[in-house]
Nucleic acid binder design. Structure first.
Length: 894
RNA sequence: GGGCGAAUAGCUCAGGGGUUUAGAGCGCCUGCCUUACAAGCAGGAAGUCGGGGGUUCAAAUCCCUCUUCGCCCACCA
């Protein structure tokens, strides 16, 4: 017999988690094989930033992935959960630049090579921390396949994609206005420039009309007066009659004193501002487009530089040159006012684009960048969704995906950074030859003229490497065994905020480069928030560190809380100021499991035969009941997991294990286990069997404690639970009769307990009870389980017969049976009368409700027969209860 | 401007046309240190399911509308 002392009375997760994890990795449980015959199941991790540390969002996301992975592994799939990290261009570069700033240096002081070397150092020293932290929450990734988006092999994949797209004319170099972060000093894609509401002003500026006679003015409303020095024209809608008298005229650009023409454009909204718009092609993407459509040649004066400082340009007044854009705005307004050219200023709230990394207001900037032509790539990705080959859970996110792909615009992939994949394009430096060589490796010379070449200094958008993650991690473009075996994958688990950045683009890349979707289901987990529904963030300090939770409550408690608290795709609210309350359910549950394990270890021998090997005739009602319940729970939990109803699965195991197995079954079999009743071997065999099933069902959610208990219990302990088989329901053990009968036993025991509690019968006092069964089934149940009932309800005597004429308490059971507990002097007759009268009134209310329903011909005529029948049963039950109560009241002489 | 989601017990949330009397965890109240577990056991209180209207024999559930929160998208400068 295994000594109980092996397990401490309180579960201490920190004492076992590390070792358990070590045993899994030692045994290679997480390593996927390309050789097995099993069906594959693949998840690629959303690669966290290489320098990041684990936060609760990762905790939730990876717990869910691990749950699915462990579930499928136990179901016999050849499972691959591929881990890795992302080089995170802007984020990582910014981080290292901040370090340099503390040393009083900038990356420009060091030069590109030294800076990149420095970033690598940083990555090597701190990078990968997050992967270690994932182990602490139990993530069963295949660590032999860890990848990084800047690995040499991965870089080849990225370059290869660039070259392929270029040759397919899906990639081009374009000169246009893009989003520029003046702080990060790089271009951003549309997705990376996030809109944020901002309180601003609308400035109404007077532009004097050239030869307009006297003081003719055109008034233009703008939010950005400082860009006016770059104006090349004013435009109004061609059908706007208010301005027809100005046809062919020009205005003087105030402060710059250059004439600019008045033109027309259908782009202009007549109702906004004054109906006249200033065109600043270098500093507004739409103005750039308008300018392109205007007749004639126009310059595109650049009046704001890369640092968002005003240019030293003749158009810019001297007093404004070199000011940053905000100061320039103030100064410009001041100058306009001085010249009487400012009509008025109105408060104005609008959405302004900000850098998604540093939240600086983005500056539109005219420049050369590389773009991916997205429309053709989006087609198959859209088709896949519309034809149901790609599924979203919850479904509503599919519409978000579809909408974005439908409205898709070209993707700017150039970043003016040093950290990342340098663009594999080489420009010819020979005079007059403007040829661009795009190739996997540096060409020795220009492929057209043989002149010297210079590589594009920019790097690629981080997402231009991560969109290849599902296959570049498997060795693509080489045709590897992994690729053969594990692509396409199956489920992607991620947060909805990167549907555009990542999910949609992976689908596009998957179809374009592999002619196959990268996964079939996208499960979107929610966002972790605080009780005010604010997302966790460092600046707010409202976050909870998952590792602190692991330390205090254990990884399983963390996982249980996250899984049980996250219905498909809904946000998870966690309260930092109430850690104990937040994680209590998981921690308490783990402790409960632990103690159930202790009980079984103490009571059960070193061997427990499978219940099938026992003589079924020896099974008592409780045995048949728990075995039957167990089969149903296996079915329900399996189905819930298959349907991604993860929180329901968690709830089902929890309630089965705690409310049914522990509170009823284990309590019921104690006399048998302790030898005071016969049938101990049957009880322990059934108990171990059911508990083992529960541990299997629980393992994907709470891997550590389930594995540790599994190891101690008799059974297949030589095998890791992580690699054990998922249970199959045994239809032959489903026993509805036993479930019904045991439900009656439970009801009767509960009724007596209620009486004891309500009438304050001392816990030690044994009492008598008289049951009046409502049906032969009920009678059979009471008779069969008389001893169980007596024990669990602390009865000295249970009689299934007419109760004596005595004062006592009366309880009605759900099936209409009733129980009477004589209480003699313990009862206060007047109090009891009051209590019973209140009870009678309540029943009358119910009764009249049901009666009214049944009197309604519409209901009886139209509702399904079973519903009507149920109502009839209800009425019968209430009526009986009513009569019984009336008897009781009479007996008491109320 | 368009779209999506949420509003259910003190708190955090499930549920989703008829399932006895709407559920869970935490918290609260009462009684118990019953030899697996006080991180426990037993019992209990607590909700007119955000407001209003509608469809239906039947609405927390479906439809409309309003209010309040949150999110996403968007070229009226």
């Amino acid at each position: 017999m295994t000594a109980t002392t092996e397990l401490a009375p309180k579960y201490d997760p920190s004492a076992i988690e590390r070792e358990v994890y070590q045993r899994w990795t030692d045994a290679g449980v997480f390593t996927a094989s390309t050789q097995s015959e099993r069906e594959p199941y693949v998840i690629v991790i959303p690669p966290p930033n290489v320098t990041s540390v684990l936060h609760m969002g990762h905790g939730l996301n990876n717990t869910l992935q691990d749950l699915l992975i462990r579930f499928q592994r136990m179901r016999g799939k050849e499972v691959l959960w591929l881990p890795g990290t992302d080089h995170a261009g802007i984020a990582t570069q910014n981080m290292v630049e901040r370090q340099l700033a503390k040393e009083g240096k900038s990356r420009h002081d060091m030069g590109r090579e030294a800076f990149v070397e420095r970033v690598w150092q940083h990555v090597h020293s701190t990078g990968g921390t997050i992967l270690e932290q994932l182990k602490a929450i139990g993530s069963s990734c295949d660590w032999t396949r860890t990848r990084f988006t800047l690995d040499e092999q991965y870089s080849r994949a990225v370059r290869s994609v660039f070259v392929d797209l270029f040759h397919d004319d899906l990639l081009y170099r374009g000169y246009r206005v893009i989003h520029w972060c003046p702080r990060c000093h790089t271009a951003l894609s549309d997705e990376e420039a996030e809109f944020r509401e901002r309180d601003d002003h609308l400035y109404y500026i007077r532009y004097p009309v050239v030869d307009g006679g006297g003081d003719a003015r055109v008034i233009v409303a703008t939010t950005r007066p400082e860009t006016m020095y770059g104006d090349i024209a004013l435009v109004h809608h061609p059908e706007d009659e208010r301005f027809h008298h100005l046809a062919g005229k020009s205005v003087v650009l105030p402060l710059s004193n250059v004439p600019i023409p008045i033109e027309t454009s259908t782009y202009v909204e007549r109702d906004f501002g004054t109906g006249m718009l200033k065109v600043t092609p270098a500093h507004d993407p739409h103005d750039f487009e308008i300018a392109g459509e205007l007749e004639g040649e126009y310059d595109t004066p650049v009046v704001i530089d890369a640092d968002a400082l005003m240019a030293h340009d003749p158009r810019v007044p001297e007093a404004v040159r070199g000011l940053d854009r905000d100061a320039a705005r103030e100064k410009t307004v001041e100058l306009l006012q001085a010249e009487g050219l400012l009509e008025r200023i109105e408060p104005y709230r609008h959405a302004v684009r900000h850098c998604y990394r540093c939240h600086t207001v983005v500056e539109p900037r005219l420049s050369d960048q590389w773009f991916v032509r997205m429309k053709p790539l989006a087609e198959p990705a859209l088709e896949a969704y519309r034809q149901g080959r790609l599924r979203f859970v919850p479904e509503r996110w599919g519409k978000v995906y579809e909408n974005w792909l439908t409205e898709i615009r070209d993707w700017n992939i150039s970043r003016q950074l040093w950290w990342g994949h340098q663009i594999p394009a080489w420009y010819c430096e020979a005079e007059g030859c403007e040829h661009v060589t795009v190739a996997m490796e540096a060409p020795a010379a220009c492929e057209r003229c043989g002149g010297a070449v210079r590589q594009d200094e920019d790097v690629l958008d981080t997402w231009f490497s991560s969109w290849l993650w599902p296959f570049a991690t498997m060795g693509w473009p080489e045709q590897t065994e992994d690729l053969e075996r594990f692509y396409p994958g199956h489920t992607l688990v991620t947060a909805p905020d990167i549907i555009f950045f990542w999910v949609a683009r992976m689908v596009m890349a998957g179809y374009h480069f592999r002619q196959e979707r990268p996964f079939t289901t996208v499960y979107l987990n929610g966002v972790v928030r605080d009780p005010q529904h604010r997302a966790f963030s460092k600046s707010l300090g409202n976050g909870i560190d998952p590792l602190e939770v692991v330390e205090r409550y254990g990884a399983d408690a963390l996982r249980y809380t996250l899984v049980a608290g996250a219905a498909a795709g809904t946000d998870v609210i966690l309260d930092r100021s109430a850690m104990d309350g937040t994680f209590a359910a998981g921690r308490n549950f783990a402790n409960k499991l632990w103690n159930m394990g202790r009980l079984l270890l103490a009571a059960v021998g070193d061997e427990a035969p499978p219940p099938e090997s026992l003589d079924a005739a020896q099974f008592e009602l409780a045995d048949r009941w728990i075995l039957s319940r167990c089969q149903r729970v296996v079915t329900d939990v399996t189905e819930a997991l298959e349907r991604f109803r993860l929180n329901e699965a968690a709830g089902q195991v929890y309630h089965f294990v705690w409310d049914e197995f522990a509170d009823w079954y284990l309590e019921q079999i104690k006399p048998r286990l302790y030898g005071s009743a016969a049938g101990g071997d049957v009880a322990s065999a059934v108990a171990v069997h059911v508990f083992q099933h529960a541990l299997r069902l629980l393992h994907p959610i709470m891997p550590f404690i389930s594995e540790e208990l599994w190891r101690h219990l008799p059974g297949e302990r030589e095998q890791h639970l992580a690699a054990a088989a998922w249970p199959e329901p045994h239809a032959t053990w489903v026993d509805e009769e036993a479930e019904d009968q045991f439900a009656r036993v439970q009801a009767l025991v509960t009724a007596v307990r209620t009486v004891r509690a309500e009438y304050g019968v001392a816990p030690g006092t044994e009492i008598r009870a008289f049951a009046r069964p409502a049906s032969p089934d009920a009678l059979q149940a009471f008779n069969a389980e008389q001893r169980t009932i007596e024990r669990l309800a602390k009865l000295s005597h249970l009689a299934v017969e007419e109760p004596p004429e005595e004062v006592g308490a009366h309880q009605v059971l759900p099936d209409g049976s009733s129980v009477f507990v004589p209480l003699g002097d313990a009862i206060d007759v007047r109090q009891e009368c009051k209590r019973l009268a209140a009870e009678r009134d309540r029943i009358d209310k119910q009764l009249s409700g049901v009666a009214a329903k049944l009197a309604n011909e519409q209901f009886v005529g139209r509702a399904p027969a079973e519903v009507v029948e149920r109502e009839r049963d209800k009425e019968r039950s209430w009526r009986e209860q009513r009569e019984t109560l009336a008897d009781k009241l009479r007996a008491l002489g109320c």
